[in-house]
Amino acid sequence: MKKISLAMVVLFACGAAQAASEDVEMHLVTPQGIGQSIGEVEIEETDNGLKFTPDLKALPPGERGFHIHANGSCEPAMKDGKPSAAEAAGGHLDPQTTGKHQGPEGAGHIGDLPVLLVDKDGNAKEAVTAPRLKKLDEVKGKALMIHVGGDNMSDKPEPLGGGGARFACGVIK
């Protein structure tokens, strides 16, 4: 009886089976700066990879490009001689420098996530999982980005899946 009680105390004290998670506040971004909050995305470690659960509003309906970017900043920066929204976030997270956009299951950028689905009212609530990302530590200090366009998980016919301009951004702390 004492062995069972001691085991239960140890499990309780250690917080057994407690997956690491982080809430990321997402903001609209423009070439002028960071705007209003549009909600949060919870990032959670699972056996299948990092799970991204959005609770977002005020997005354009449809499929949106969704990525981890290399730098932990949502500030504008110069691109092609003009201020660009959240450009300080850098490119897609690509620590192996593959230079390829092949989606969350491909061998390219590790920051490529499944598309974010936005309903007709501009809300995103459907979770997606990135199977190649296993630990929250891999993305801490990086930016989570939502693009104006969708993502075809290829560099053709448009680079980086055709996601286009950066629409919303949050820093993973």
Rank of each mutant, 00 (worst) to 15 (best):
M1W: 12
K2I: 14
K2Q: 13
A7G: 13
V9Q: 13
V10M: 11
A13S: 15
C14A: 15
A16C: 10
A17N: 13
A19K: 12
A20I: 04
S21L: 06
E25P: 01
M26Q: 08
V29I: 09
P31R: 03
S37F: 09
I43F: 03
N48V: 10
G49E: 02
P54I: 04
D55A: 15
K57D: 10
G65A: 06
I68G: 09
I68Y: 00
H69M: 09
A70F: 05
A70Q: 14
G72Q: 04
G72Y: 01
C74D: 04
E75Y: 10
P76C: 05
M78C: 01
K79G: 12
G81F: 04
K82V: 15
P83Y: 10
P83D: 08
S84P: 02
A86S: 06
G91A: 07
D94E: 08
D94H: 06
Q96N: 14
G99D: 06
K100R: 13
H101V: 02
Q102M: 15
E105W: 03
G106V: 01
A107L: 10
H109T: 02
I110S: 11
D112A: 09
P114H: 00
P114T: 00
L116Y: 02
D119R: 07
D119M: 09
A124C: 05
R132E: 03
K134R: 14
K135R: 15
V139K: 02
K140Y: 03
K140T: 07
G141F: 07
V148R: 08
D155E: 12
P159A: 13
L160W: 07
L160V: 08
G161P: 00
G163Q: 01
F167R: 04
C169E: 01
K173P: 11
